[in-house]
């Protein structure tokens, strides 16, 4: 065995960290030799070599067991997952870093002036706050109808929602995706909303209540929103007789009046536009003749005989060579 070990050492590569040996020599079975026997023989040799390498490692005794410290593996193997990136700072953390603001440890116990003893800052047995009050002062006498307790829960909910929004914005920033726009409407491309978009969304907000904006007051300086679309309006069925009479009489008068009903301004504009338009080049006589001898006398040319256009028509044709099927 010792003779063979020295012989086998040529070109061997050990990676003791993985308990691995690779032998680059090819293994060829000679005549009358089964491959399995050869493999067993050769592998025993290599195992012996590897075992020798492992036993040659610095040994130590821990709890009646002899262990060998393995070196680091030398074979490069791919990782399972990419190397973690350092955690991105939140907006506050970045600001605090710039300004040199450091977190300061708060003491766990705080002095409670009402009971005159130290109590935990939060959690069980913390000093009583106004949360526990069963009666509350109304700060704003105008809003007397508002429930002060409800106000408090509402304020808390809003604070929670704000924090959640900030959290999401921080995540979006960390992953370099679109940061949701703060304010009324999300705009594609993360731009600041334009004036018209703001006014439009304000108009939508006005109608976003139970009565579809019927009772929403309009402000003094409020202007009608552009490009909002118009609603059709109909006269009521049992309307004012006087106004209906006026309307129908107007129609009748316009029909019977002898005055020419020409809106001079409009007509002038139309004439001007027509004269400004570049003239079409006149077609020569033979060009005219080539296309349909009848000309425009009997209306536009029909579609008959043209057949269907596009891919639908191609289906009808039989292809010269059938396409390969996959």
């Amino acid at each position: 065995m010792v003779e063979t070990t020295t012989k086998a050492k040529h070109g061997l590569e050990f990676d003791i960290g993985n308990l691995l040996v690779s032998d680059p020599r090819p293994l060829v079975a000679e005549n009358n030799q089964s491959m399995d026997d050869l493999v067993l023989k050769e592998m025993t040799e290599l195992t012996q070599l590897l075992l020798g390498q492992v036993w040659a490692l610095p040994l130590e005794r821990t709890e009646d067991v002899i262990v060998a410290a393995l070196p680091k593996p030398t074979t490069f193997l791919p990782r399972e997952k990419p190397i973690p990136k350092p955690k991105a700072l939140t907006k506050w953390e970045r600001y605090a870093k710039e300004k040199g603001i450091t977190k300061q440890k708060k003491s766990r116990m705080v002095y409670d002036p009402t009971t005159k003893e130290y109590k935990p800052r939060w959690g069980y047995q913390k000093p009583s706050t106004d949360d526990d009050d069963w009666v509350r002062e109304v700060n704003n006498p105008i809003d007397e109808q508002e429930d002060v307790f409800e106000q408090k829960t509402k304020a808390k909910k809003e604070r929670v929602a704000k924090n959640e929004l900030q959290r999401l914005r921080n995540i979006a920033r960390a992953y370099k995706t679109k940061v949701p726009a703060r304010g009324i409407l999300p705009v594609a491309g993360n731009k600041t909303p334009s004036k018209s978009q703001i006014s439009q969304s304000a108009a939508f907000a006005k109608t976003a209540d139970a009565s579809v904006g019927k009772f929403t007051e309009t402000l003094k300086s409020e202007k009608p929103v552009k490009n909002m679309g118009k609603k059709r309006k109909f006269e009521s069925n049992e309307g004012d007789l006087q106004s209906e009479k006026m309307r129908t009489m107007g129609v009748l008068n316009s029909v019977f009046s002898k005055k020419p009903k020409v809106d001079t301004e409009r007509a002038l504009g139309r004439v001007k536009r027509r004269s400004d338009r570049p003239k079409k080049p006149q077609r020569s006589e033979d060009q005219k003749e080539r296309k349909g001898g009848l000309g425009n006398k009997f209306g536009p040319q029909g579609k008959a005989g043209k057949g269907r256009k596009g891919p639908a028509n191609n289906k009808m044709k039989k292809p010269a060579k059938s396409p390969r099927r996959f």
């Binding site: 993985n18 308990l19 691995l20 040996v21 690779s22 032998d23 680059p24 020599r25 090819p26 293994l27 050769e42 592998m43 290599l46 195992t47 590897l50 075992l51």
Partner: peptide
């Protein structure tokens, strides 16, 4: 159990 791994043959190289 951590096994011994043995590779034999030139094609692995």
């Amino acid at each position: 159990n951590k096994p011994f791994l043995i590779f034999r043959g030139d094609s692995f190289e």
